[in-house]
Design a protein around this nucleic acid. Structure first.
Length: 448
RNA sequence: GUGGGUGUAGCUCAGCUGGUAGAGCGCUGCGUUGUGGUCGCAGAUGCCGCGGGUUCAAGUCCCGUCACUCACCCCA
């Protein structure tokens, strides 16, 4: 029988790597959760019109990357390619924009873009995002950027950098746009790029092809054409970033792929991912909510790519992010001890100790091997001897030490909790007998 | 949508100008009567991506096809 493959370009995360995926997702979102953002759960499909109007029909995302289909009621539906438009729709529809401001929300989940897959680029991608709606205070721009910066640092990432620029506003950008178009008209560009120059000239600045970029060294930049308000806003954002200790690069040619961005835009870039180096980004979108029929509220937010952030962690050698999903593994010896073992198992789980048990009546040797494979720091052995003496054997897998403890919840569970705390604070070396003469280079290679 | 690369054991890969399919890791068992990780010994596992062609003979050469992958455009 032929096996069925996953659709092109969608990632599977299987153990043990799925643990790291979850850790990345949880750590990125806990940063938002701990920063006053409320969770918002949204549908993964929306009316196609939402993205056409919100993201913009001139964008590549809308023009060629959306998964769009007609449902049974003849409605045009699209799997969401990004998060902000859906959040705005929900905020308007649920009247959150009429309540206390700013509305601060976070979300996570899958997004879909029908692109040609590549390292770090998938047709189903996972993001964690935040949106702060209803304030145009530049301090919130800086706070949002610092939040993303903090989220990455909480994973231990160090090698990323942050690009920041201002795209101006609805007042100063049109004039700049004309100026840029005049400049681009003097350049030698291919047909497709010419079309882009007429529809969305800013995006031409971002072209990485040398034949194009060499012609653009003297192109006018938005950053030099900001109106007084935008200039002031941008100056303040940068001043706050300085005060918050966030390091960034001025990136006047950076253009983001979505039409709604105004003023502050930013992108986090990691060098370890190959061509798809953006691990997250965002910006301010001052006209979006009104465009979607809501209040005239400005907003700012970001989306952080979970898939790419995981790749970044791997590139920096930070994985595995957790050693084991278990605290305790229980090894029964002989059939009579199976039920007592499972009773103990339930008691441990009930107090929040992650525990599993060996099944299939395996030999103690085989069961210990299974225990070792789980990486659980503690193993409990319970057989005929322990049953008759009402004890269990608790083995520290790192040190190999084991001790006999009375099998009574009141004393055993606190003892286990204490042992786990001690191990967490001061994990024993993996191989205390060996002084580990290996060279660090060899070890690094073996890991990567 | 355009271009390059790769498909051989569970994983990473070797296999020369065609001649009966290999390594390391992992896995299973044994060395231990109730103890894993280290060490030693033994063992299992392959439609060599799929279809066709050339040949006495194809993992190897040719054609097609599918899949994966990297890059361009663009993006998380």
């Amino acid at each position: 029988m032929a096996i069925i493959n996953a659709p092109k370009g969608v990632p599977d995360y299987v153990p043990p790597r799925s643990r790291d995926f979850l850790s990345v997702q949880e750590r990125l979102s806990s940063t938002a959760r701990l920063s006053g953002y409320e969770y918002i759960e949204l549908p993964v499909f929306e009316s196609t019109e939402l993205f056409e109007r919100g993201v913009g029909t001139s964008t590549d995302v809308v023009q060629k990357e959306m998964y769009t289909f007609t449902d049974r009621g003849d409605r045009s539906i699209t799997l969401r390619p990004e998060g902000t438009a859906g959040v705005m729709r929900a905020v308007i529809e649920n009247r959150l924009d009429k309540g206390p401001l700013p509305v601060k929300l976070w979300y996570r989940g899958p997004f879909f873009r029908a692109e040609r897959p590549q390292h770090g680029r998938y047709r189903q991608l996972q993001q964690v995002g935040v949106e702060a709606i209803g304030s145009s205070d530049p301090i919130i721009d800086a706070e949002v950027i610092a939040l993303a910066d903090q989220a990455y640092r909480s994973l231990g990432l160090k090698e990323f950098h942050l690009d920041v620029t201002s795209l101006g506003c609805l007042h100063c950008r049109p004039a700049y746009r004309l100026k840029l178009q005049e400049f681009l008209a003097t350049c030698d560009l291919d047909q497709q790029t010419k079309e882009r120059a007429s529809v969305n000239p800013l995006r031409v600045l971002d072209d990485k092809r040398e034949s194009v970029s060499t012609q653009l060294v003297d192109a006018p930049l938005m950053i030099d054409s900001l109106c007084d308000q935008c200039q002031d806003h941008y100056d303040q954002v940068r001043e706050f970033l300085r005060l918050f200790g966030v390091k960034w690069n001025e990136a006047p040619r950076m253009v983001r792929g979505l039409d709604y961005y105004t003023r502050t835009t930013f992108e986090f870039v990691h060098p370890g991912l190959g061509a798809q180096s953006g691990i997250g980004g965002g910006g301010r979108y001052d006209g979006l909510m009104a465009e979607l029929g809501g209040s005239e509220l400005s907003g700012i937010g970001f989306g952080l790519g979970v898939d790419r952030t995981l790749l970044a962690c791997e590139a920096e050698g930070l994985t595995p992010l957790s050693e084991s999903i278990l605290d305790v593994f229980i090894v029964p010896v002989g059939v009579e001890s199976r039920v007592p073992c499972v009773s103990l198992l339930f008691a441990l789980r009930a107090v929040g100790i992650a525990a599993d048990v060996c099944v299939d009546n395996r030999s103690i040797k085989s069961a210990m091997k299974a225990a070792n494979n789980t990486n659980a720091p503690l193993v409990i052995i319970l057989g005929p001897d322990e049953l008759s003496s009402k004890t269990v054997v608790v083995k520290n897998m790192a040190s190999g030490e084991q001790q006999s403890l009375t099998n009574e919840k009141a004393s055993l569970i606190p003892a286990l909790q204490q042992a786990l705390l001690t191990l967490q604070a001061d994990p024993a070396k993996p191989e205390p007998e060996k002084p580990e003469p290996e060279k660090p280079e060899t070890k690094k290679e073996a890991q990567s």
